[in-house]
Design a binder for these strands. Structure first.
Lengths: 147, 147
DNA sequence: TTGCGTGCAAAGGTTTTGCATGGCA
DNA sequence: TGCCATGCAAAACCTTTGCACGCAA
């Protein structure tokens, strides 16, 4: 016998907010601040629990950018299937997170599958490197700010 | 005027150990345990500081598997340049971390650079997905252990 | 009324930091 | 001797968890 599921005010508030963020990423903290600013009190534990539930239902995605920043979540619409497939590029220098939709990159999944038997999860994979802006601004300088 | 740099016993011990681990991954905790087992006392803070220094010097790589496990480090030899270039595949199901050297994948870097102006860091990037073994063992089952 | 979802606070684990001490140059 | 690196403990950080209460069904 399946567990009864309750619908709560917090669930609605949270999911409504998330749909307005379609296509961009946010952290649990972002959500908390959003509601705090509107004097709506939702406990951080509830936010984490709801986000985790939405992740396990496949309604939102969760990414790990790096170890010291909070996890990022993202809502990509109702049908976040192959059609809305995109990749994330993370700049190691400026920290920017870039969305990338690219046919050629999508073939990467096919290659990994066919040649290496590995089923890529593009929604979870993050490419690290240096973005265009940072590359051009440091073209002739090797200086990294060192303490 | 550059800061004077001191050579210490701990630095040598730590780097020596790391070179014996060439090609495999380890955490800060692994290092601590290694020395503890040999009754060599190196503070965990020192381990983190030294590992971080080696990362910033480019001598070792650091990558993040997921948010709740410790960061992994890896030493790939003196010249971890294009020639020793490889990728990391992480199975989301069994947790296995796979090393992959692949010509075609290397072209990925070129594509990202030429078409998107993004300089990929393959040593930091981890591809998430399902490995061959897990894919075949769950071919006909959709069951994920749910609580 | 039943029992799920919430909120608070405390705990969890990894990593960083302050400060006094030890040891390299 | 000067001052960097170390070690300890405490702190920071994000996230999870225990437990009592409120609220949906």
């Amino acid at each position: 016998m399946p567990k009864t599921v309750y619908k709560t005010k917090q669930q609605d508030l949270l999911f409504n907010y998330i749909t307005t963020m379609k296509g961009s990423h946010f952290t649990a903290e972002d959500v908390r601040i959003h509601f705090e600013e509107r004097n709506i009190s939702i406990g951080i534990a509830t936010i984490y629990r709801q986000l985790e539930k939405l992740v396990s239902e496949g309604k939102i995605q969760k990414y790990f950018i790096d170890e010291h920043s909070a996890a990022c979540f993202e809502y990509d619409g109702e049908n976040c299937n192959a059609e809305s497939e995109h990749f994330h590029l993370k700049c190691e220098q400026c920290g920017k997170l870039i969305h990338l939709e690219c046919e050629e990159l999508s073939e990467l999944g096919g290659h990994l599958k066919n040649e290496h038997g590995f089923t890529l999860n593009p929604l979870r994979t993050v490419f690290y490197g240096i973005c265009k802006d940072c590359a051009s601004s440091t073209k002739n300088t090797v200086c990294k700010t060192e303490s």
